[in-house]
Design a protein around this nucleic acid. Structure first.
Length: 896
RNA sequence: GGAUGUUUAGCUCAGUUGGUUAGAGCGCACCGUUCACAUCGGUGAGGUCGCAGGUUCGAAUCCUGCAACAUCCACCA
């Protein structure tokens, strides 16, 4: 095999990756309909790719997601499932619009939306989004993602728009979508509402003013937002507060900074009498908390801040049109001059700001569309019911869900999906966070005043209103608002499978609920919860069986990767440098689900080294397979039995770990097996013991298969070089039971070889610990420094040295070793002696503990302290253990 | 303020129902290597498992309290 010899010593990733990906794609295996028969008969297995936002390029977090999903899909495909991975992108409404707006401003426009108008502006956004899509698709391919491009979806394409319309219509008819005048989060910068989740907070220092509205007002109040006080309609106090009790029910008409107010004094439990003055100025128009109080006491709502974050004319000519900052200063000055200001205090406050853009968010009352999460509605179908799976469900007929026609709220559906275990969140601890979030969920404001997004399918003509996806006719105008981006991505698992189009949906029905949703933990609420909502509502089933959450990818110091810190690791720069396989390994191994990961270039370099190690292992095995000496039928030696037993062990363990999302542990185990057992021991032995071609082939095949989901490129490439059957991507996952080993041999082979390995290690240690006679020491030094394998040959044991010479070790059981020349005798019995001392000490300690255990257990038995366990059995177990320990000690003592 | 995590070797982290001598990778020190691989091999040093109690024959693991850090939620006007 001359060609094998000519292969480069170092693996050259970039030379093969693109070609390899093109080959896979051309072979059609990414499409489940074109998979081999074995998979056609297999169970459907589907992953929906979380569609990346069309806002630019992919980052390390995406790369991690892709690596995990591709690992799962390749693993299940090899296991014979009908595996479908649907790729796609998200229009991301506000995020994309904001991005484009910022770009246009950079290009010199002052107010792009005004300058271009709705149509022209949207053209620019669409153009940007399309370019972004191309970049994302390219990067996804570079990562080696084996997703079905023939089924690529977009959250803003025609079919997904049909799903959005269908859902809106259903929810509207069920009374779950409503228009209402309520307080919403308003972003003055981008002139749109925001959901609670799109609002973040920033710690700032601000002034806490304590004052009275005017000199005749009897109660002082405190505020950090003096500008909003023009809209106060009440002062709330605790109903039992002795200071203010007498005022409750009265109405005052103070003049605040020139504006006449009407202030009712109300008693409300929500007020903390210990904070500030114990009295709260209620501003129903600009605080959600105050709006709640206002609702309880039927208070009027008076807006005083406009959409542009400037004061409204209601505040009087002196203040109208002023900014919030200006108003604050002026109010403070006015109060101070009038002698109404009691105190000014610096306090820490969390200022709400917009997630995109960062402008302070105002709370304003507006007419908007809402999804009612707490409103009961009549179920259209049995929902979340799986009676066959549940013993109690069958027994009581209740199942873990609701029946058609029952009254239920969306919130209850979201709870049940996870409570019943029909959707599992991995790691489990996130279930608690999920429940907590659902419990505190408020109605979801779904209308946005931005232009890029699914238009709200509602039409108006005068006072008439109709829900429709097309114009109902002459004179009808569509609602100018668009839908929150999560309204469309909430239906992703089923809209991407064709719902509500009957033909498409039926063709893909078997893939839903999808197997697993893999995404970042930061997106639990935004997305996961909303997918559960949409899917349980529309289909009556969960969107996915498992939600696997990965942590954030941080830099080596644990900081978030960001442009301003300049610590971004870009997958597109790393892949040409280290190879996709190395980048994937560094994202898959060495981290824990749900826990943030620190990534450094050094780590990727380490996995590049491993990729190269696997390459060289393969190269060596390929050479051996072509070597005539290796072709001879090898007797199954101890080493053979050992390595095959290990392989069997490892493959079953790795399979189990991958099934339970323990990717890191699986990878580590595989790495240890590949590097330590296979390369460092078995391959060294194969240099001396010949006739191993068959076993080497088995080993190489199995190792390539198991590594394939982790590092698809190098494994598939070697598979091709070895001329193994077909493509590795559709090869059968190794089954630990088919290895050519009798059961009895497995353990024996392993333990025997392990004990020899231990012996070698002991000898190395002894060389250091015990001074050996000079004549012998020479040999020992050689042994310790060079020996790389222990092998069986002609009924003798041979230690092979890297420099080519061998030492024959005879009579291992008796503990002697002799070199071929017979010059040096190694006192292995000494090794035994040293170990025996330690062993004895350890066992003696264990024995003492067990004796105490016996004593305490017997005492408990006498006092009848046992409640559950059968005492006889406990005592018997314990005594057996004790006897075992005593036996061991005796054996050791005899040998000493 | 509430919730959820984290705290194990110099660094990054494993450690699955409590049970031999607490592990790995990187880094470090020393030794070595022409024929699979210096993107290599061998040997070694390095840990009171955050702190304080408790349960147990036995605790990194279970319980209680404390501390530090992180994230999320709610924010006191």
């Amino acid at each position: 095999m001359a060609e094998i010899q000519d292969l480069p010593k170092a693996y050259e990733a970039s030379a093969i990756e693109d070609k390899m990906y093109a080959e896979w794609e051309a072979s059609g295996v990414f499409n489940p309909d074109k998979l081999p028969d074995r998979n056609q008969k297999g169970e459907p297995y589907c992953i929906m790719m979380p569609p990346p936002n069309r806002t630019g390029t992919l980052h390390m977090g995406h790369a991690m997601g892709m690596a995990v999903q591709d690992l799962l899909i390749r693993f299940e495909r090899m296991r014979g499932k009908k595996a479908l991975w649907v790729p796609g992108t998200d229009h991301a409404a506000i995020a994309t619009q904001v991005k484009v707006e910022q770009l246009l401003i950079k290009e010199g426009m002052k107010d792009p939306r005004k300058e271009l108008g709705r149509e022209k502006f949207l053209e620019r956004v669409v153009q940007f989004a399309d370019e972004s899509r191309n970049t994302i698709v390219n990067q996804t391919r570079k990562m080696g993602s084996s997703c079905d491009w023939s089924r690529e979806r977009y959250t803003f394409d025609k079919e997904r728009n049909a799903a959005v319309y269908q859902l809106f219509k259903m929810m509207y008819e069920d009374g779950l979508i409503e228009r209402g005048y309520r307080i919403v989060n308003w972003d003055p910068q981008f002139q749109t509402t925001l959901s609670d989740d799109e609002v973040q907070t920033k710690d700032v220092t601000t002034k806490l003013l304590t004052f009275t509205y005017d000199k005749d007002f009897p109660i002082a109040i405190s505020t950090t937002r003096p500008e909003s006080k023009f809209g106060d309609t009440a002062v709330a106090v605790h109903p039992n507060d002795e200071r203010y009790k007498k005022f409750i029910g009265q109405t005052f008409e103070p003049v605040f900074c020139g504006k006449k107010l009407s202030i009712q004094i109300v008693g409300d439990e929500a007020v903390d009498p210990a904070f500030g003055t114990g009295a709260l100025g209620v501003t129903p128009a600009h605080s959600m908390i105050d709006a709640d109080i206002a609702q309880r006491h039927n208070l009027k709502t008076v807006p005083v801040i406009g959409k542009d974050a400037k004061m409204l004319p209601e505040c009087g000519p002196e203040f109208a049109g002023l900014s919030i900052e200006e108003t604050r200063a002026k109010v403070e000055k006015t109060l101070s001059e009038a002698g109404l200001l009691k105190s000014v205090e610096e306090v820490q406050q969390a200022l709400p700001i917009a997630e995109r853009g960062g402008a302070p968010v105002e709370q304003l009352p507006m007419e908007q569309w809402f999804v009612r999460v707490n409103k009961p509605f009549t179920l259209r179908q049995d929902t979340l019911r799986k009676p066959s799976d549940s013993f109690f469900g069958k027994l009581f007929g209740t199942g873990t869900g609701w029946k058609k026609g029952e009254q239920v709220t969306l919130k209850q559906l979201m709870m049940t999906a996870v409570e019943s275990g029909q959707t599992r969140i991995i790691p489990e601890q996130f279930e608690k966070i999920y429940f907590h979030w659902i419990n505190n969920l408020r109605d979801w404001c779904i209308s946005r005043q931005i232009w890029f997004g699914h238009r709200i399918p509602v039409w108006y003509r005068g006072s008439e209103m109709k829900v429709s996806d097309v114009s109902p006719g002459e004179g009808w105008e569509q609602d100018p608002d668009t839908l929150d981006t999560w309204f469309s991505s909430g239906s992703w698992t089923f809209s991407a499978l064709g719902w509500p189009d009957q033909k498409e949906w039926e063709a893909h029905r078997a893939y839903h609920p999808t197997a697993v949703l893999e995404t970042g933990k930061d997106i639990l609420f935004f997305w996961i919860a909303r997918m559960v909502l949409m899917s349980t509502y529309a289909l009556g089933e969960v969107p996915f069986k498992d939600a696997y959450l990965h942590g954030l990818v941080r830099d080596e110091q644990g900081r978030k990767m960001s442009k301003s810190l300049g610590n971004i690791l870009d997958p597109l720069e790393l892949i040409p440098k280290y190879g996709t396989d190395a980048v994937r390994l560094s994202l898959l191994i060495g981290n824990t689900p749900g826990q943030d990961t620190k990534l450094s270039e050094q780590k990727i370099e380490g996995y590049r080294n491993f990729t190269n190690k696997l390459w060289n292992i393969s190269r060596f095995i390929l050479m051996q397979m072509g070597d005539e000496a290796q072709q001879a039928k090898g007797a199954e030696t101890l080493a053979d039995r050992w390595i095959l037993a290990r392989l069997s062990e490892v493959s079953s363990s790795v399979t189990k770990k991958l099934e339970t999302y323990q990717f890191s542990a699986a990878g580590e185990e595989l790495r240890d097996f590949t590097w330590n057992d296979l390369a460092d021991w078995y391959l060294e032995i194969a240099k001396v013991e010949k006739g191993k071609a068959e076993i080497l082939k088995t080993l190489l095949q199995s190792v390539l298969k198991m590594w394939h989901p982790f590092m698809p490129f190098v494994t598939e490439y070697v598979w091709g070089l070895a001329k193994f059957d077909g493509k590795l991507i559709v090869a059968e996952w190794p089954d630990p039971l088919v290895l050519p080993l009798a059961k009895g041999e497995t353990k024996e082979g392993v333990s025997e070889f392990e004990s020899l390995r231990q012996l070698v290690t002991d000898m190395r240690r002894l060389r250091a610990e015990n001074g050996v006679e000079p004549a012998k020491q020479v040999e020992f030094v050689v042994v310790g420094a060079h020996m790389s394998a222990l092998i069986e040959q002609n009924n003798a044991w041979i230690m092979r040295l890297v420099n080519g010479s061998c030492i024959s070790v005879s009579s291992i059981p008796d503990g002697y070793a002799v070199t071929p020349s017979g010059k040096a005798t190694i006192g292995l019995n000494l090794a035994g002696a040293v170990d025996l001392e330690k062993e004895k000490a350890k066992l003696t300690k264990e024995l003492e503990q067990l004796q105490k255990y016996v004593a305490s257990t017997e005492a408990k038995l006498a006092n009848a302290e046992f409640t559950s366990k059968a005492p006889e059995k406990v005592i018997a177990d314990m005594k057996a253990k004790l006897a075992e320990a005593q036996e061991k000690v005796k054996t050791i003592e005899a040998r000493l």
